[in-house]
Design a protein around this nucleic acid. Structure first.
Lengths: 252, 252
DNA sequence: CGTATACTTGATCGTTATCAAGGCCTGTGG
DNA sequence: CCACAGGCCTTGATAACGATCAAGTATACG
């Protein structure tokens, strides 16, 4: 999948098409003439290994993208949100399966035509590469998370990213929705459903988040959340002095 | 980083240049006129966050590519081998640091020129995308490994990949070299050095691998290794019936 | 040959998975 | 509107896997 990651990038993807509506200068504009398709919650968009005949632009709703291991365990490699492109696997077969978390609306586009069009457009090519780069960066962040963060750090990182996505649209809003189930979150963070639940409870008890229904959550102490996420930056402490390089190599 | 992953692809990258030596039809041929540079074992090629002014083609030796977390923990996101391209981050800054595991020889190329050249060449563009796709697939495999494989499965997966890389050059060879330290392997697999060591010992006791010096290992039961790696395929059992989907969702 | 580094092995502890039960929403049908 | 059923989620008890702490051993390099 290709998520429109950082806020700045996400904006620059779109703003150009306003100026030149005729020639497709942003990737989404390729899809704009395609009919809107729907998919119910839980529905499958495609399976890992399927012939990758189409790409999709997610217009509304949330998708989960995952792999099933030989023994049946599921690993969710990402969630996709409106504006993201799905299935840009650049291979003949999809690398993963994609399912709707919520009811979803999307536009379909032939992969072959997409590749030809983007390939022959000097404007679109760098946009595709930028998306691939964002996706790669996200994958590496996820590897870091899975490699050496504990349950609390994982969940805080996750909630923080949700908050950041939310704030791209609505600055100052502190309620983020979590349309996915606890099991989805667990399979995304490499934890069990019980650990996610327990950790969520602990964050609530600490007053860092507050309950706001089953599928949303109120972030009470964003700064604290960022700290617990264990990502040196996220809240601009990238300028703060590096603290105690001595206790490096602690736990995994 | 961009590793020449699957055997077939790796070959197709190279074979074309033999036919047409004049026009660069494979990505490496761009580098062929650049002078060979050297780097001692342990030397740094670039740091995460550095301006990405250059790309590199690794000609000889092994590199490790990694991120350092805020608290000093290190996550190795990959190892690079001869033929791989390094630093194709597609961003203005490198996403990771790169160090030499062994003494290394490589060729340097301006990132700007690389992007322009590849961008304007209909032959090279798909090669770059194919590499990016391979890298993405590798990153996802790593996420699966880190998400839900135990220590033994992780190490077996790692050894198996080393064996496969080796067999691309020398079919039938069963000794793979592990130029990296145990600490490197641990930081790559999300384990501690002690766990790597213990697991290695256990595999030796089981007769699956045999000792062959500190920096190489003999694979005695490749089939068994593939089975323990917990990857349904890897040894063509992708054609075997899916066994017991009931015990899905076991451990993480 | 001796020292430093890398690796192995052992004992113990902690985090998280697993097993098990209970509570809470949601939707459905009476 | 209420009762009930089935998910989904939470909470508790226990166990296992791997991290951590601590020696001890091999290997490389001067």
């Amino acid at each position: 999948m290709l998520s429109a990651n950082s806020a700045e990038r996400a904006q620059s993807y779109n703003e150009v098409v306003v100026a030149f509506d005729a020639a497709p200068i942003c990737l989404q504009s390729l899809f704009s003439k395609q009919p809107l398709e729907q998919l119910d919650a839980g529905g499958t968009l495609f399976f890992e290994g399927d012939q990758a005949k189409h790409l999709f632009e997610l217009v509304e709703g949330v998708l989960r993208v995952f792999k099933i291991m030989a023994d049946g365990r599921r690993v969710i490699t990402g969630f996709l949100y409106p504006g993201d492109l799905v299935g840009v696997s650049l291979r003949n077969h999809y690398l993963y399966s994609a399912e709707a978390v919520t009811p979803v609306r999307l536009r379909r586009f032939s992969r072959k035509v997409f590749e030809d069009t983007v390939g022959s457009s000097p404007e679109l090519r760098p946009l595709l590469l930028a998306r691939l780069c964002d996706e790669m960066a996200a994958a590496q962040d996820q590897m870091v998370l899975l490699s050496c963060k504990n349950a609390e750090e994982r969940l805080c990182s996750f909630l923080l990213r949700q908050l950041q996505r939310k704030r791209e649209q609505d600055r100052s809003c502190s309620i983020v929705d979590l349309p996915m189930t606890r099991l989805d979150i667990a399979d995304y963070l490499g934890l069990t459903i019980e650990t996610v639940s327990r950790t969520m409870t602990r964050l609530t008890n600490k007053g860092i988040v507050g309950p706001a229904g089953r599928h949303s959550i109120r972030i009470l102490k964003a700064r604290m959340l960022a700290h617990l996420a264990g990502e040196g930056d996220e809240c601009d402490d990238r300028y703060s002095p590096v603290i105690s390089l001595d206790d490096a190599r602690r736990r995994h």
